[in-house]
Design a binder for these strands. Sequence first.
DNA 1: TTGCTTATTGGTCGCATACTCAATAACATT
DNA 2: AATGTTATTGAGTATGCGACCAATAAGCAA
Lengths: 224, 224
Amino acid sequence: MTSRGPGKRVRKAPAERRHEIVAAAAQVGLVEGLECITLRRVADELGVRPGLVGHYFPAADTLVAEAFTAATMADLDTLLPERPDGSGDHSRDDSGDGSARAVLRRFFTLMSSTEFDNVSRLWLNARHLSRYRPGLREHVIAQELLWCTRMERAITAGTEAGEFVCADPRATAVRVLVAIDGASAYINTSAEQRGAPITHLARTVAEAELGLGAGALEPAGESS
Amino acid sequence: MTSRGPGKRVRKAPAERRHEIVAAAAQVGLVEGLECITLRRVADELGVRPGLVGHYFPAADTLVAEAFTAATMADLDTLLPERPDGSGDHSRDDSGDGSARAVLRRFFTLMSSTEFDNVSRLWLNARHLSRYRPGLREHVIAQELLWCTRMERAITAGTEAGEFVCADPRATAVRVLVAIDGASAYINTSAEQRGAPITHLARTVAEAELGLGAGALEPAGESS
DNA sequence: TTGCTTATTGGTCGCATACTCAATAACATT
DNA sequence: AATGTTATTGAGTATGCGACCAATAAGCAA
């Protein structure tokens, strides 16, 4: 990426450099795994000496934790955008098809595409690594809460709009996410044969808990 | 555990020593994590020099893989015994209840008890570590298949006995296990607050898929 | 008892990690 | 243009890992 001759220095504002380091670490963690976020690895990525990374993050654990948060925050915004993208007048739009259902359908479709396998790997990675790194654990817990809240809000929106029937959106959100985590647990082992019942379990759970017909959240988009 | 003065040698038959090493490694992996299965750590456990462990396992990956299999095999036999343990009077205990349901109830009860948290941790650990260690990955896949088959057999038994109603025992087994893996994903992070809906998701899924009433597989034993 | 096989030891080597710290040079301010 | 701040380097320490190998001694067989 960035290659400079030895000895050449590029001096940046601390805030910018720090952000740059976290971003590089997040990329490494997402693609290669969180245990590959090492001072040297991140430094190489930026064309910088390892000592510099160590200067900004005296404890490596902190860097791993922040990198995880940065990565998952970006992923969440892609999978479950806070506001349906480019919708100034959504209250009028969803009168026909219902945007809440579209949001969930989009979520399940993206999540089961191979493009987001790295996200599944990252979560699996982080949940295990949290066993040893308390700094990371805190960030993982915070992200779990954030994802759950975001999902709950999507469900609540659909319920209030009359699209879903759900007595306890919070509990449903939890269960749907648990089902997703169960499916993504197999990402490194039986990923190929997970095809049939595994991938669709989360979607099935969601449809059942939201009072929707089977297949209502399927990618195809054809509703009943 | 085993402490000998330095220099004192205890010479054992290769097969016995090897088995001993795997057992010690399995214990370390179960309690402290698979990445703690190191030549030195296992050697310490046995009161033996590290070189010896390296002699029996020229590639450390092999030891980790075998240790995982040893640990999960033992756990599976405890959770889902091939034949109901001490089956002298269980048919009387569950009087009229049917033993297949008792087997599953026992499984869910044990699995959600804190005593088996280490088992959940081990699976989470192994599934992530499989990303980097191909030897381990093969063993994990084999164990996934074994657990699934064992669960499928329990379901099939109940179906044939008329206790359950299930069209596709295999698919149901898969889904139940996925739900369990989803719940155990939180073992290192939100373990304390997983109380409410997380733990019981797997049981709920099982009850629904087997045509049982809600709570039919609950620990208490009181159905309907 | 003597001898032989080999399980076991003790040490070394190379590599990778996090972390520390004095010296240096880039940039902003004067 | 001179100066001061500080971001950045380079080198060093300490720890841990797997892997390798000659020397040793334990236990069996003759």
